[in-house]
Design a protein around this nucleic acid. Structure first.
Lengths: 335, 335
DNA sequence: ACCCGTGATGTGACCGTTCACACCAACGAG
DNA sequence: CTCGTTGGTGTGAACGGTCACATCACGGGT
């Protein structure tokens, strides 16, 4: 005898076992109220007995709701994005949504479009874009996405669509801390010019200096890597017409510390350094790094909360910026 | 007048515009060969004109193929897993598969089961599990998943189902390097006992010492964090009955370097340190860390390749272990 | 002239679920 | 006693594709 072709049990199988109609089973699944407790019980038992699992594809087809949130990220393996994404995943799952994640090859328009197209072809109901670069953000405007969207790491852009840790405030915090310690010649080792938050951090730095009537100088534009911090440090520290550096992220700060050490400089005695992000390693740098902590988990959580609210037709109050926190360690000291 | 209810164009709309039957459109979409070039052209044009997008849910429903690969990860925001996952995503997308990612709350059986259940309810066709802990791996055995599965970071377990960088070889490489430098008293700062790869690294360390008839000593069991490395270092270095330490990951090594520095010890003069992983920051530790590099990207790529082969009913040859590489920097020196 | 094979295209059914609506019994109001 | 209401349940159709099979025109071998 041919072995029966195994087919997963469906709603009608459950109905037959429970002795009800398939519609009743459907009602139990969507916990509609108009069901007699006894009936519900029988159905649940049948579901359990058969090991029935609702078919998401069929459900998505008929409701035209995919229950999927798309995530478009540029560097999903970096500490910040990775942490936010994990939080997004947890929040989404809790709300009965799944995630579809894709990385963009570059920040070119074509690449962003390809990413969005890919996600739209999955019929995502909402979109989280980790859009750290100006071009990504602009490409998104042009694409006029038809679903609710939140962009992360895009401080100061369209506040209705973006959600961020306040980078300007963070940078002011860092710079102000150096000023309070008596530093007047403070250099800024910045991120790439086309990164939104690099620009915001730079702005916060400039504002804080202006407020204090301190000398401002042209920031050095880096590429976020520790290696850049190192090589730039080797150059800059040879001249050393500054007593402190506000570095736009912890990795570059690490490289800078490396360079300082190699040149025989003592941090913080000869040079104060402040970073940004507070990656888990920062507390054990040489010396432990004073830095600005961003709450990436909170950002991820809120992104989902905003999108779910929009999907329900409400407006969320979670759009306000998240405040960063200055973490004092040993890489900064008085002049 | 009521505004027309907007409905996404479907295969029949395309057919009407192109003047063919819906089946012909379906054939074009699945590029079946028996289509006249002229007809295909007309259909493609109609698709373009209408902005038609195939409905994945409908397709999944009728074919009962979700084209989804599930990823179950414990710490998706850590450098290793995050890097592998990004590679998995890229490879999957290229092959026309999407990813469904979920994190496990803990390594408890219930938590693993919940994660697998969640993914199965999405009807994933295959599973990648980043299963670094013994319990995760065992839970998976018990669950007897019905789809092709590959477990990562589970060196030495069922070689038909797992895919790893050879941790034993990596640890031998590291330990051997220290032996070659003349060290005889080598300590091992290990990972938690219930982590598969912590055990494998420990084994490699012990084997290398045995091969060289060097004194073996009880490894210290840590928790992977830099802080642990730091506090353990403060204790251990006060006695310092060893000249070198092989640390099971770079983060703990960072903490150890921190402790050494605080106690006024010079690395590598007073103490040699080797790490594991080669996280991007390691090159700028104080001093730059000698460590064992793992190719996480390759692992992710191969995992997908293996699963796709299995889905096609073939057997892949990509199961062999990936070899790690010793990266020599400045944290190790002769006795 | 006939038949058959083949390439190109069309038709009906089905996948598993929800939606809209029909149905029916019980019950309270008039 | 009748009728409208309501709570609980059932029926047919639809969602947007693919599969199996039917159909049809055309050309070559006999």
């Amino acid at each position: 005898m041919e072995p029966e072709k195994v087919r997963a049990p469906n709603i009608r199988d459950v109905a037959r076992v429970a002795g009800v109609s398939y519609q009743t089973v459907s009602r139990v699944l969507n916990d509609s109220e108009a069901i007699r407790p006894a009936t519900r019980e029988r159905v649940l038992q049948a579901i359990d007995e058969l090991g029935y699992r609702p078919n998401q594809a069929a459900r998505a087809l008929v409701t035209s709701r995919s229950r999927t949130i798309g995530v478009l990220s540029s560097q999903s393996s970096q500490y910040g994005p990775a942490t936010s994404i994990a939080a997004i995943e947890a929040a989404a799952r809790e709300a009965g949504y799944r995630l579809s994640i894709t990385n963009t090859a570059s920040s070119e328009y074509a690449s962003i479009k390809a990413g969005v197209d890919y996600l739209m072809s999955q019929a995502v109901e909402a979109l989280v874009v980790i859009a750290p670069q100006v071009r990504v953000f602009e490409a998104l405007q042009d694409l006029s996405v038809s679903v609710p969207i939140v962009t992360l790491e895009s401080t100061g852009r369209d506040p209705r669509r973006s959600l961020s840790v306040d980078q300007v405030a963070g940078a002011r915090l860092a710079t102000r801390h150096l000023l309070d310690l008596g530093h007047r010649d403070i250099l800024h080792l910045a991120g790439p010019q086309d990164w939104i938050e690099a620009e915001a951090r730079m702005q916060g730095y400039l504002e804080a200096l202006a407020d204090a009537d301190a000398r401002t100088r042209a920031p050095i534009l880096g590429d976020w890597t520790a290696s850049f911090g190192y090589y730039a440090g080797l150059e800059l520290l040879r001249v050393r017409d500054f007593t402190a550096v506000f570095v736009a992220n912890d990795q570059m700060a690490l490289g800078l510390l490396h360079a300082a050490r190699e040149l025989g400089l003592q941090v913080p005695d000869d040079l104060s350094v402040v970073g940004f992000d507070d990656i888990p390693e920062a507390a054990h740098f040489a010396p432990p790094l004073t830095t600005v902590r961003q709450n990436f988990v909170e950002i991820g959580r809120r992104a989902v909360s905003i999108l779910l609210a929009e999907l329900r037709g409400e407006t969320s109050t979670d759009h306000q910026m998240v405040l960063p926190e200055l973490i004092l360690r040993e890489s900064t000291g008085p002049v």
